[in-house]
């Protein structure tokens, strides 16, 4: 099975949600999470492979931009079009307060 966590970026709260799901987030200091705030990885636009949990579920993070909330529906439709089921692929949107402000700030020059 594959699980995709979708946020405005794939390298912030979607990534953290993916690690919480996998049960391997042992600290609140996210700076040491692999790919955290890795804008280069995010800008590639590919699914970011986060890892595999104890049950063999493969976990991904994806940044879909400002309208990230549409992504799970699109992914579900695509999955259904090709005859796959929820047992094989699930996508969930991850949001936090101030989501879009955070997204905008993320792309300001340093």
């Amino acid at each position: 099975m594959n699980v995709i966590f979708v946020g405005p970026t794939g390298v912030h709260h979607a990534l953290i949600a993916a690690h919480i799901f996998m049960g391997d987030l042992h600290s609140n200091d996210y700076r040491f999470v692999e790919h955290y705030d890795d804008k280069e990885a995010d800008l590639k636009g590919d699914l970011l492979y986060v890892g595999e949990d104890a049950n063999g579920v493969k976990v991904y993070a994806f940044g879909a931009g400002a309208n990230y909330e549409l992504a799970p529906a699109i992914i579900a439709d695509l999955r259904d079009l090709f005859g796959f089921s929820e047992e094989e692929l699930v996508a969930r949107a991850v949001s936090i307060p101030g989501n879009l402000l955070f997204y905008g700030l993320n792309y300001l020059p340093p």
Binding site: F62, N67, L70, L89
Partner: peptide, 27 residues
Amino acid sequence: LGKKNMGDRCTAMIMSVARLLGVEHEV
């Protein structure tokens, strides 16, 4: 498909998910 402001990310997402499902040559 209507994807609002997802821009080219929508194409990238569709193709990435298709790759994950092993159907990238079918979409």
